[in-house]
């Protein structure tokens, strides 16, 4: 396959970026999208692919390349992680594209995710949301009660697991027209609110995490559902409703 790539290039956080066009050839359908970018970068390095403005290889985040670390993050042809469903960019394969196609590649765009270089953004806002309360306050004494002392209904455990499969890639924010982080935040709130271990800090957790989310500069949820459609782990929109409920409940009942 031969492809035309239009890639966002930006030297660093302070510089102004632009879309730059590259031509890649000899792409095979079995390649993953990131392997296609590897080919582009090798070509730029060797001079086989023309890089007029001398930007050098395209910087992009990636690590596990099996769809679980949440590092890869490209906005491809107008969608986060590209046209595939329930996939991350690294799991997207070139057989989804056709010969001669033009592919647009951009970074996640949100005020809360400033660009570091090219396609690399700073997503530490997500870490700070978790730090605000996305945990159970238990020390690692090794003397907690026996794991089976507290049975948890399978249904709740499964629902908590489904929410907990979030990989924190930020596709939800990238997809949302408002750059809202509700799906990410609500997935953690939902997970811990479904488990008895999360109960003691239930109110404080949701209030603190929402507060942090707001401070980071994410937008508001308008229930478009784009986040859930584009989520590589198919985190349900139900979690957002659950967080809305938890937050309302917390504000009405908490003594704080």
């Amino acid at each position: 396959m031969n492809l035309t790539l239009k890639v966002w290039r930006q030297q660093n956080a302070d510089s102004k970026g632009e879309m730059v066009t590259y031509k890649v050839s000899d792409i095979t359908p079995d390649m993953s999208f990131l392997e296609m970018i590897d080919v582009l970068n090798e070509g730029i390095l060797s001079g086989d692919i023309e890089d007029k403005q001398n930007y050098g290889p395209v910087a992009f985040d990636h690590d596990c390349r099996e769809g679980i670390c949440g590092m890869c993050s490209m906005y491809i042809n107008g969608e986060p992680h590209g046209p595939g469903r329930a996939v991350t960019t690294c799991q997207l394969h070139m057989r989804e594209f056709s010969d001669g196609e033009t592919i647009y590649i951009e970074p996640w765009r949100a005020k809360a995710f400033p660009i570091i270089k090219d396609l690399v953004t700073d997503r530490s806002a997500f870490d700070r949301i978790i730090q605000a309360g996305g945990y159970v306050s238990v020390n690692t004494s090794g003397n907690t009660q026996d794991a089976n002392a507290l049975p948890i209904p399978k249904e709740n455990a499964d629902a908590a697991f489904d929410a907990a499969t979030c990989i924190g890639c930020g596709a939800c924010v990238a997809a949302c027209k408002n750059s809202s982080a509700m799906l990410f935040t609500s997935a953690k709130v939902a997970q811990l609110s479904l488990l008895p271990q999360g109960e003691p800090e239930r109110e404080k957790r949701v209030m603190d995490m929402v507060k942090q989310m707001d401070e980071e500069g994410f937008g508001n949820c308008t229930n478009t559902g784009a986040c859930s459609v584009e989520c590589p782990k198919e985190i349900s929109l139900e979690n957002i409703a659950r967080m809305n409920r938890e937050f309302l409940r917390a504000n009405l009942t908490s003594s704080k």
């Binding site: 107008g78 765009r109 005020k111 027209k177 500069g217 308008t222 478009t224 459609v229």
Partner: peptide, 27 residues
Amino acid sequence: LTVANKKARPQNYAYSKPSKNSIWTSR
């Protein structure tokens, strides 16, 4: 809310296809 939402994405995508993931009215 709309003003806040606009602020949350100061720079827009050069190429975006929101119709792939949400209905027109919701946006």
